[in-house]
Nucleic acid binder design. Structure first.
Lengths: 137, 137
DNA sequence: CTTGACTCTGTATTCGGGGACAGGGTTTAT
DNA sequence: ATAAACCCTGTCCCCGAATACAGAGTCAAG
């Protein structure tokens, strides 16, 4: 009644079994109890946890970073200054990335919009050149 | 006088030699001429080209995508509808990503700001829970 | 009691994007 | 003419994040 097989978790969280075992080995999900014969039995929270992981991954958190967040989440008492440090650092990275993406978007947008609509020289789009100026970052 | 060694290019573009050879093998930079003894001689445009690649990489373009952009850049006459398609598609991806990052930033910001400043239960930050709701994406 | 679906462990492979290094040839300075 | 500093090709190794597979054990149905 209580406890899910690895397959049920995999299906519910929309990942495959190997991924779950992999997360276990990386310490991202708690080590689940086993049946007598050695089958893993997962609490249903595991599904939420995997959702969390997948969500954070989409935002370019590495598994290592996600592990940290989850550790904070797990320990009910935690030094929040540490996680605060971590998150504000991550926020900065995100802000950088957003700015870069907005730049890129502008460049692409101009490339798409300003250029003549059919066959023409790409050099009529002076914007592509902006890209080639200066060193990266 | 005209033409740079691989090391000069590497230094100027701030990558290392292997990377340049790798880009050549992937078709990202034109195949350079060689000296009689087989040493590559690069035109100085190669530096700009590598800058372009690095810049685009920071924005999560894959080398394959960058190759496409560069091909458009190389062929002076190109069907711009195709590249327009490509860029508008990419713009959409970027917009998605920006939205996701802004969400993430908000979540992290709240986590960092609203939580008590030192030791406390992380569950006093209800925001971390928002994270675990629903499916990914 | 056998078959099929499921699970286990462990190892290997993939993919992107390079880095490291071996074993050799070349160019430049001394 | 020899050492240092280059360059070449080729192959293997690294990381992150899985995925695949081999070989074995287990469980439920007929």
């Amino acid at each position: 009644m209580n406890g899910l097989s690895i397959k049920e978790v995999a299906k519910a969280a929309n990942v495959n079994k190997e991924t779950i075992r992999y997360y276990e080995s990386r310490g991202l999900i708690p080590i689940p109890p086993r049946t007598e014969s050695g089958y893993r039995i997962f609490p249903k929270e595991t599904i939420k946890r995997i959702n969390f992981i997948k969500h954070a991954q989409e935002l370019d958190f590495t598994l290592e970073e996600i592990k940290k967040l989850l550790e904070a989440y797990d320990e009910e008492i935690v030094d929040l200054r540490e996680i605060k440090e971590f998150t504000t650092q991550k926020i900065k990275e995100i802000e950088f990335k957003i700015r870069d993406l907005q730049n890129m978007k502008r460049v692409l947008f101009n490339l798409a919009e300003k250029c003549p609509d059919s066959k023409a020289s790409i050099f009529e789009c002076p914007l592509i050149q902006k890209f080639t100026e200066g060193g990266s970052k």
